[in-house]
Amino acid sequence: MEFRKSTESDIEEIMSIIRQAQASLRTLGVNQWQNNYPNAGSIRSDIGHGSSYVLLKNEKIAATAAISFDGEKTYDSIYEGQWIMDQAYAVIHRIAVDGKKKGFGIGSDMIKYAERLCLEKGIYSIRVDTHERNLPMRKLLQKNRFQYCGVIYLSDGSERIAFEKTLC
């Protein structure tokens, strides 16, 4: 497998995976990633900020994620709990796996690569948020030893549950 930063030429393939994830969430009745988000503009912005990554298997994109080290404003306030560490952290957003490759640990592989990036930068914490009803994501986080920390609110007021994993 190859883990690398995304490029503009990857956007179409990334969006195909994102659309699969959007359809899957819609089928599960989860109101996350609907209303044209994420879209090609979101991915293009991630690429521009150097935070879009892909995981390739047999030269095809198997998974995508935004991994940022710039903090997350919506994480400044957490309710009904608290973050584990009070120091620099990475954020994983927009993680998605190609539907044909689900069940093979690709999501966990993407998280492991994110952990390596963190350690290379001397960052020992990763934070993630998701919709309470997004059970596939919650299962992935639990499998990879993320701990539930509380509730955060997105800029549009939507509630998300927040998780953190420490790497030390």
Rank of each mutant, 00 (worst) to 15 (best):
K73P: 07
E2G: 10
Q82E: 06
D156M: 09
V151H: 07
I43R: 06
N58E: 13
Q82S: 11
R116T: 08
G157H: 05
Q20D: 02
L56K: 14
L56C: 11
G50W: 04
L135T: 02
V91L: 12
P136F: 09
A114F: 09
E80I: 04
H49Y: 02
W83N: 06
V97T: 08
Q142P: 01
I152R: 11
M85L: 06
T166H: 06
Q34P: 06
G157V: 03
E164Q: 14
L119T: 00
N144P: 01
R133W: 02
G71V: 08
I106N: 09
Q22K: 11
I67T: 09
Y113I: 12
S51A: 06
I126Y: 04
G29Y: 01
E120R: 14
G41Q: 13
F69K: 15
R26S: 01
T64E: 02
K112W: 04
G99D: 00
S68N: 10
Q32I: 01
A63I: 06
A40K: 04
S24N: 14
S16L: 12
R138K: 15
D109R: 13
S9R: 13
I67R: 14
F163G: 08
A40H: 09
A96W: 00
P136N: 13
I61N: 07
D156E: 09
G105W: 02
S9Q: 06
S77V: 10
T7E: 12
E8Y: 03
R26D: 00
I84H: 04
A40F: 05
R94W: 04
G48L: 07
E164G: 08
E12S: 07
K60R: 14
I111P: 01
S155G: 12
R127G: 03
S155K: 15
Y113S: 09
R44L: 02
C118A: 11
Y153H: 15
T27W: 09
G99S: 12
S68I: 05
G103T: 09
M110R: 13
D70E: 13
D109G: 07
M15W: 05
L117P: 04
Y148A: 14
E8T: 10
R138F: 05
R127M: 08
S6N: 12
I106E: 13
A63R: 15
R94P: 01
R127H: 04
L119Q: 06
C168K: 15
I92W: 04
S52P: 00
K139F: 03
C168P: 01
K143F: 06
K5A: 13
N36Y: 01
H49M: 01
S52N: 03
I92E: 07
I61W: 10
Y89V: 09
Y153L: 14
A23W: 00
D98R: 10
I67H: 06
E8A: 15
L25A: 15
T7I: 13
R26H: 02
Y153G: 04
D76L: 10
Y75V: 14
A40G: 02
L25E: 03
L55G: 01
W33T: 02
N36W: 04
K165I: 07
Y53H: 10
K121H: 09
R145F: 11
V54C: 07
L135M: 11
E164L: 13
S108N: 08
V97L: 14
A65C: 03
Q87P: 00
Y37H: 07
G103F: 11
S77R: 11
H131I: 08
I111C: 05
F69A: 10
I61V: 13
